[in-house]
């Protein structure tokens, strides 16, 4: 009994995968290869998942998007117009990056601004730290002559310290 159910499930799955593997509207787009589709899909992102590129997404929704790309490619559209079609349909989330306008410009500007600001801060701080120490190198005559005992001890400790 179990085996029967198992076989049934197996055939069902085969069917599902078959359906996934084949484009649904192959008649107009049959001349377009999967590689050509993926060329475009690589620049789009699954609107349902986060951070999954369209060419690597296995959702049925994404497969349909790829079919749509094939249709549009067959109709002679180029990558840019396909991309903009999906943006108007689904919104900017199909692009992997925020659009460079309006509030979303901040996504691009702020990291650069913070980095430059931080660099400037480090530079000025570093310089002021350096000015603190700049006074001329120590003239040896200024130093009190160390008593030999301590110097010897220091040498001993140094010899042990490595």
């Amino acid at each position: 009994m179990n085996r029967v159910i198992h076989l049934l499930r197996l055939t069902l799955l085969l069917f599902v995968f078959l359906a996934l593997g084949q484009p649904l509207y192959a008649q107009d787009a049959s001349t377009v290869t999967a590689d050509q589709v993926n060329e475009v899909a690589r620049e789009l992102w699954c609107p349902l998942c986060s951070g999954v590129r369209l060419d690597g997404c296995e959702l049925k929704a994404c497969d349909q998007m790829k079919d749509e790309i094939a249709i549009k490619l067959a109709a002679g559209d180029d990558t840019e117009s396909i991309k903009s079609y999906f943006v108007t349909q689904y919104g900017p989330q199909v692009l992997g990056e925020p659009p460079r306008s309006g509030f979303n410009l901040l996504a691009w500007i702020l990291p650069v601004a913070v980095l430059l600001g931080g660099g400037l801060f480090v530079l000025t701080r570093g310089r002021s730290m350096m000015q603190d120490i700049r006074p001329a190198p120590v003239a040896s005559s200024e130093r009190p002559v160390p008593d030999d005992d301590y110097a010897r001890r220091l040498d001993e400790e140094l010899a042990r310290h490595d």
């Binding site: 986060s50 951070g51 900017p92 992997g96 309006g102 979303n104």
Partner: peptide
Amino acid sequence: SEIITGQRISVAAP
């Protein structure tokens, strides 16, 4: 972005 503009965007690998 969604809180301020109400628009959903994604920030991904690119």
